[in-house]
Nucleic acid binder design. Structure first.
Lengths: 264, 264
DNA sequence: CGCGCGATTGAAGCGACTCAACGGCAGTGG
DNA sequence: CCACTGCCGTTGAGTCGCTTCAATCGCGCG
């Protein structure tokens, strides 16, 4: 979703044909790769209708799509990390989420034809693009792809729900603890170390995502470090007490400032 | 989404055949009705494969599905209002959203097989159920239904993003103002009065949805009334100054300096 | 009628926001 | 090569607003 252990191997031949898009003869392979990436069994992947899948490389800091732009495609992330956010009239950036390998971005555009949020790469990344006109075409559907899309969207919905979960916590340390636990879970299912990972986003982005001021993130990190729950150096995070961290996540309302002394 | 003007006519013959499900000969009609309800053009609705659509009545206060339960179906709301929420270990209810006519609930279950949140009817309601096994079946797909599902899910994603939008506001009055504006928008697109509507949810539910204490909701309502922006009696809301209300929505947080997005 | 629940209002404390300053780091251009 | 300039991250101090605890009122319901 948001981190990587310095692995993100650019090994598997991204090399695009054009400035933006690759395609042509490679499309058939791209579709099979996409289904494999997203965890679908590739049964019948050879007997597929001609659903073109394009690949696109996005360098760190570049935008995959802009908020409000005419929607052309939805994107499956092949490698790298993105943040999605909306920009208010006053310029405030509300981060809606971080998306990594195997995740889907840009899907909200399907109902309106315009992207409801922007997506920017937090590191050099690559995505598979599925054009909307192919997704909505009546004929020549690919059942495997359809199922893959539905499942990916379902997961995206779950992650949006988690956003509400982290923002609902009152105390900033609790929000941050939940954020770290979610990150750890993501690393684990990605087959990487669940206790050591690298933040790909700035403190500001985290703050926006959690709904607090960015200074509060600094202080919350310091608090978790003081509690011996984690070690943080720059953007490298090491979880030292997962149990304690999860215990901290429990509190929703009511401050966690434990206070053994109830008022007498 | 969440309100109705006391119209919700139970006229169009809900009458279920069994205790829970209706079906049988009416299924063919139900599919056509569903497509019409969701705004799809019903072209070729007669030449549909046999996709069974079941209808279900849910009385006020009853649960459509429970959090964590094995998922059987996703639901298109035909009439009424639901709230979706997750319950923390300490019993705190985090409201994830309110869903009304033409909206979709339960979709998150698709990726895990279990419902990630619970759905409870806030008034007597009826839904169309689309069984997961039909949704995921490889053969005999209905292109119109597929497209309808995708669009409904897209809209649900947009609404989840709006949740982040309301929770990101700092001041409680701003959150509430945004909530009212969203409600008004929903009423308008539903073809009802955009300035007068009835809240179907409790103050507590609103508070949970907006991420504040329920007492704060009372005070925020009083503040908006004092500002002559709205009138509120019990759960009946009348918007008196839509411009002022929208102006209040503007405030988010201090603007974040441009930063990212180097060259598009 | 009494009980419970929803809603409102008051009082007090504290936690997060805001403003501000500082150090470190990377990119840039003289 | 090194100042210069942003940006990121941290830390401090003060104010404000929300949370929490508490009491009260109205209403529906058994």
């Amino acid at each position: 979703m948001s981190t990587s252990n310095g692995n993100s191997q650019p090994s598997d031949s991204p090399k695009p044909n054009g400035p933006f898009w690759s395609g042509g003869a490679a499309e058939r392979n791209a579709l099979a790769e996409l289904l494999y990436l997203m965890g679908s069994d590739a049964r019948g992947a050879d007997a597929l209708p001609a659903v073109p899948i394009l690949m696109r490389i996005v360098r760190e800091g570049n935008t995959l799509f802009a908020e409000g732009a005419q929607a052309e495609a939805i994107y499956f992330i092949r490698a790298g990390t993105f943040k999605t956010f909306r920009t208010a009239e006053d310029g405030y950036e509300q981060v809606l989420g971080f998306a990594g390998r195997t995740e889907l971005v840009g899907f909200e555009s399907l109902s309106t034809g315009h992207y409801a949020s922007a997506a920017v790469a937090l590191e050099d990344s690559s995505v598979y693009a599925l054009l909307l006109r192919d997704l909505l075409s009546v004929g020549q559907r690919n059942a495997g792809l359809d199922r893959t899309v539905l499942q990916a969207v379902s997961r995206a919905m779950v992650r949006r729900g988690e956003l509400a979960g982290v923002m609902s916590a009152v105390a900033a340390e609790v929000k941050l603890a939940r954020f770290f636990v979610h990150l750890s879970d993501f690393m684990r299912v990605a087959g990487q170390s669940a206790l050591t990972f690298h933040l790909r986003m700035s403190r500001r982005d985290i703050a926006s995502y959690l709904g607090v001021a960015h200074e509060t993130i600094s202080r919350a990190i310091a608090a978790l470090v003081n509690l011996q729950l984690v070690s943080v150096h720059a953007r490298d995070v090491q979880i030292r007490d997962m149990r304690g961290l999860q215990a901290l996540c429990g509190g929703t309302r009511q401050p966690v400032h434990d206070s053994n002394a109830r008022h007498a």
